[in-house]
Design a protein around this nucleic acid. Structure first.
Lengths: 218, 218, 218, 218
DNA sequence: AATGAATGAGCGTTCATTCAT
DNA sequence: AATGAATGAACGCTCATTCAT
């Protein structure tokens, strides 16, 4: 009753809202963010354009919400691993493995939004928030492991984590553009070696990773 | 998919053509590829919209040509380093340094085109060609160094180079989105350590890099 | 052109109907007729859009009914004065005073509907009916006064009344547009002088109006 | 060269511009201002919608310019009469005659814009400017006549002029709504009588108007 | 060769209306 | 009876492109 004229409830739609967003995510991954029109999402979801308008208020808001939904998955998965945080080398390895196995559609979605964020202040804030959330579990794991004596970092924690994340995200373009995709296993070894070097992992804490001790054996 | 029937001479414009392209590159870096209109390039270059169309035929062709011009610069710089190829660790360090010091506008340009390439077959070909050209000097340097006994690679050359390039390109989003930009020096150490590990650099060949021998001294 | 097939009961809503109409009138005066949407009336009245449609059937019918309600007020007030009709100069003065003191919101309402009526046959009928009803008390007063010997009209009654009403309505735009609003008193004198001239008011019937005799004294 | 992107030359179109505006004026008089779409003016003038956009920048600007063009005619005609200003009663009579013979399409145009102006600040400014320009010749004529001894005004000049203009504009709705249109001659007499009263016209200056001296003879 | 003028295709958005509850 | 949800029609506007000079 007496809602402002232009103001639509940001939560209209209920279940259909989530349904629509999943389709929006797929469309963005397929066509690119800039090329994603209401008509595309409407066609993909079978819901009228004006209904989408009613749900989200504007195209941009719809896309931002699709972005949020898409990234929540990534962050949640990371937090799940972090919840069992014990600061061990194995945990970090698991986190890296998860990052390296990010599916191509997720990479495409992230790529679209990061690229758009460069020219859009609101998206940039979202991107910054995502970056922080994504890195937090890494930071915690490194800090805990350091306190427990498993790691003797050569650099600031932030730098180590950033370099690790960059190495993971560095896979984005090879993956989405179809270059060199299959050799992820070898890439994994190198990334872990880089991490082990930066953390100066104590040898007694390294067990499962062939590359993990490879930098010690030398 | 190019080469439309009515395609104008691809060389119309002469000197002004290059002049326009440089402005087009700047506009794309500033506004994003999708948001770059004829009117923007016309305003930036001071040349009428219909003249631009006379030069390039269509907006898409103009942007593709701008992309070509922009990437040529990157590849040329890399080839210059490669021309004095001696397969030494120092050379690789110089190449990495050059990659890590890629200016933000260049990153933005590359980001725009890689992102667009995901949804455009023609751009994808260009991207693949660029990837190959960019990696070639690295491959040569590693191969030559290996032949000369400076390196004893733990992995296939291609994997090593790819991981190196990924680590460099992984800086793209932190740089263009303004996260964590300043600590490039520490990042450099880590990247070089990773490379030294992968190449198993002989200690007698390492001289100028503090990080270069840091992975040996252990 | 009204009375569509599916027309809902024109009396749905009961008391709330009148309540809504008053809000509709206010909204039209505020925003203009063309800019008045269901959503505006819904917001102003606190009643859902679809309920309004249940009451009135369509936006146009709602606005027409609001117009009817708004004009009834004007006509009723005029009839009240006319009910004590004694054909005296004083009565005409009172009617003129009432016309000149029409509040701005009423002028705005009338203006909106008259303007709309120019392009809408149904509204035009309403406007014609209103015009007739509004002028009737004037006509009666003039006729009665003439019969009783108070006036010796120089022109047809209809012409005199029309000129009088035009002089009153001529204030509409100065009032609603905010030009020259305050000097209504002087304007009143001039209008009354014009009327006295047209009616050739007998001097013995003129008493209370300073302007009434001012045209005699000369 | 290098015009701002959204900025179009407000003077594009040349002759066609005036041609379009005349059609726009006709459409507004026919359909009403709020109901006048680009498509209507395009159809009436035979010029594409996007061309109109190019000329005027926006629908609102097109309508405002049409308004200006329509009112210039009225003001110019008034100024022409005023240019031979001699402060005589005959001149004022001529000005009133011109006002009373305003053609219905002009009244419709004015009505549309005045009504719209009530809810639009920019139009309101235009309306205020028009009001001032339109009244100026009347003011000058009255002042000159007063100085020359032809008039001995009973009220402030501004009040007299306003009441005169109001009486003229009071004809608007009867004319555009088709009420009582034909009896303009009788109406003219009454208006002139009102004016003669307000100005206390010296009898020796009155010649052509039967109503002019009729208010003296009583 | 270079440009201004004209235009059509396409998109986001508004809003009255229909439908189901 | 009252309402929220869904939707199609319509409009203003942007922009790449075509045409004539």
């Amino acid at each position: 009753m007496s809602e402002g004229v232009v103001r639509r409830s940001r939560r209209a739609g209920g279940e259909r809202r989530a349904y629509v967003l999943d389709h929006a995510i797929a469309v963005v991954a397929e066509r690119g963010l800039a090329a994603t029109r209401y008509a595309d999402v409407a066609e993909a979801s079978g819901i009228a354009v004006s209904t989408l308008q009613g749900y989200f208020g504007s195209r941009e808001d719809m896309l931002i919400e699709a972005f949020e939904r898409a990234t929540v998955v990534v962050v949640d998965a990371m937090n799940e691993l972090a919840s069992q945080c014990d600061g061990s080398w194995q945990q970090l390895v698991a986190m890296v493995d998860q990052g390296l196995s990010t599916p191509a559609p997720t990479w495409r979605m992230l790529m679209e939004f990061w690229t758009a964020a460069v020219h859009d202040a609101e998206l940039q804030e979202h991107a910054a928030a995502l970056a922080k959330q994504y890195r937090e579990p890494y930071v915690k794991a490194v800090q805990l492991g350091t306190e427990r004596g498993a790691f003797s970092p050569r650099f600031e924690v932030q730098v180590i984590v950033e370099s690790l994340v960059s190495s993971i995200v560095g896979l984005l373009y090879p993956v989405v553009l179809g270059h060199f995709a299959p050799q992820v296993n070898a890439y994994r070894e190198i990334v872990l070696a880089q991490l082990a070097f930066a953390l100066r992992v104590s040898s007694e804490h390294v067990s499962d990773s062939p590359s993990g001790n490879s930098n010690v054996e030398r």
